[in-house]
Write a protein that binds this DNA or RNA. Structure first.
Lengths: 227, 227
DNA sequence: AAGTAACCGTTACCTCAAGTAACACTTACC
DNA sequence: GGTAAGTGTTACTTGAGGTAACGGTTACTT
């Protein structure tokens, strides 16, 4: 009875990865169900799509909004996979902006149903507690704010505007993308160009007002980064 | 029995205005209920707030989403009352932009609960059919697009970008406002200024790229309006 | 004056989807 | 053999949206 040090019962560990996998499976099923039956799918539908009955679903998700949250996170992954590189890449500033914007548009273009489900989503009983979309936008906006803030500081400018700027940009691209997705009245490349132009002009104006002359065709680097 | 020409039975007309008034009354009750009990109010709550029972509500609104739609439209009115003048007003371009932005922010600042209810709204069973918020954004964006388009044409520039521009601007202000409303980390005036600066720079940049030199302190008027 | 078309309002019900209880089988660690 | 995890089922409860059926009021119509 000297305790066998082996730690927690191995029977508890046996499933560790399995649960994750199962959740992912159900998330995929939800996405498939949404694609098939529109954004108003119920738990029953999702369960059916996954080939199980409701209680099974509820063993993996506490409730509907938990499931939908997971779907939202999956969507975020898709988005980030595409946007991450674009955000991180260096290069001519104007082209870089356009690439980021286009990355976003390409994702929503490829997954319109998923996108609509998540953003205009039937977050049926979401008591505003967890709003995936808001989370995601904050995530992206924060990343942007950090980048912007760094540049502003590097150019010795007031960095207080970085956050509102970031959120403004995110909202701008999202809403324009939204509109474009519904009535596709122009090519994606065209929209990316328009949006990038707006953003570039805004950035350029900001820099000018601080006496910096930027070249859209060059990477944006301050002459001297702070120390 | 030569028909008494008096047209439709006057008993039918008697209530014409009354129904409108009653609907408005319930819309107000909903807003009040939302203020009191958070955004998750049910029909029962709303009815209670209005001092009646559910069926009465259902005599005036076909269903929940009809009621919420009406609430949304009421919110639009509030918004438009404030933004209309700002949009229509003439004056120095930079100040004008700021005024429009600030008008928007002031409305959401004064009715935060209503705002949240409507936009992040518990549009519980909305089958995407009628989305008030989307409607409203389109409304505003269209107004903007018209203004922008006119200017672009007046300056002999490509006006194809007017619509994406408009939607981009709307999304920008909305999202930044959203963010600001949740964590109020700066004054409204401050945010208005930041946003107006972004927009002004974008506008200015666009004009520059067409060889037009604009003065932020002057009304934006093309030298010669088309014919 | 009697009839009736519109409203006012109620209580008690129906319905449907979210979520749960209870029960039975499987696997692999102890 | 015991048991801790997971597999799965059918059948239930719950709650909010929405409806039925009933009765009362007002004021126009005949």
């Amino acid at each position: 009875m000297a305790r066998t040090v082996k730690g927690p019962d191995a029977r508890r560990e046996r499933w560790k990865g399995h649960r994750e996998q199962r959740r992912a499976e159900f998330v995929e099923a939800t996405i498939a169900a949404v694609a098939k039956k529109g954004p108003d799918v119920g738990m029953e539908d999702v369960a059916a799509e996954a080939g199980v009955s409701k209680p099974v679903l509820y063993r993996h998700f506490t409730d509907k909004s938990d499931l939908y949250l997971a779907v939202g996170q999956r969507a975020t992954e898709l988005l980030m996979d595409r946007m991450g590189p674009a955000l991180a890449a260096d290069g001519p500033i104007r082209a870089r902006i356009e690439r980021i914007v286009d990355a976003y548009l390409s994702v929503i273009e490829e997954n319109p149903n998923l996108y609509r489900f998540v953003v205009k989503g039937s977050f049926v009983d979401r008591p505003v507690e967890k709003d995936v979309v808001a989370e995601d936008k904050n995530l992206i906006a924060s990343a942007l704010a950090r980048i912007l803030g760094d540049y502003l500081r590097a150019f010795d400018m007031d960095s207080g505007g970085a956050e509102p700027w970031a959120h403004a940009l995110v909202g701008m691209v999202q809403n324009a993308g939204d509109w474009w997705l519904e009535r596709q009245t122009m090519s994606r490349a065209n929209l990316s160009d328009y949006l990038a132009t707006i953003i570039w002009h805004a950035v350029d104006g900001l820099l000018r007002s601080a006496g910096v002359q930027a070249d859209p065709a060059k990477p944006l680097t301050p002459l001297r980064l702070v120390d």
